[in-house]
Amino acid sequence: MADHIEQQLAPTPGERTAIFFKRTDVVRTSLLFIFWTAVFVVLGVVFYPKWMPLVMSTELKSAEAIMVWFTVISAPIAGLVLAITSNAFLNMHRGDTPPPDGPAVRTNGPVVAVWTITSLLFALVAIIWGLTEMNGQAVAAARDAKSAITVEVTGSQWLWTFNYPAQGIETHELNLPVGVPVVFDVKSADVNHSFWPVQLGVKVDANAQVTTVIHTTPTKIGAIDVKCAELCGLYHAYMETNGAVMSKDDFNAWVTAQGGHNA
């Protein structure tokens, strides 16, 4: 098919384009391209919102957005790669002798150039998106520093403990008031741990002798799971605890019940 078209006498550029898009392999690849691109778009839009936990903070929201949108943006590139690959797969040659030789195309300057520039642009989108998000989070953290409540988190083999200095309580459950920015000062009593309140979408390692800090603002009321995300020995799997984002009144009541005082 393709070979037959190649043998025609020098067509004009316009004719060449028209011929190109009539070639069976091009038509088939185009259809496959649409199919695979759609697959990836659907995958991105459906998979993450379905499988990720309830979004309870701005940080998890931005993480989820990155995963959904990056899948959608990369869908055409993945679609093109898979279209060409699956077209070749469908074109397979079976038997014990090799297929006839294909066209001796050693390279194609414009294709390489367009491909490289496209992937550069794609990388730039990812970089700029990421840097913008990071910057936004840093700005929000600085803005909220005054109004935030502080929770001192200590990881030890194999339990999280939470100290609320302003409230004067120490617990092994992480309860937070909704809508109030929170600063976690995280450290370890022994080996490295990683503090991960899952539904809040932030994470930071707990190290001995150093305090690491993360900020977030819970946006929804609900249960949260606190896990350890850095292998810390025998019972790493059980270094989990629960907690909740609650209304301000509930939080104050809980603090009082723990013997603390409301700031």
Partner: peptide
């Protein structure tokens, strides 16, 4: 290492 464990809970 962690004083919290001195409490009965």
């Amino acid at each position: 290492n962690t004083n919290y464990f001195a409490k009965v809970l």
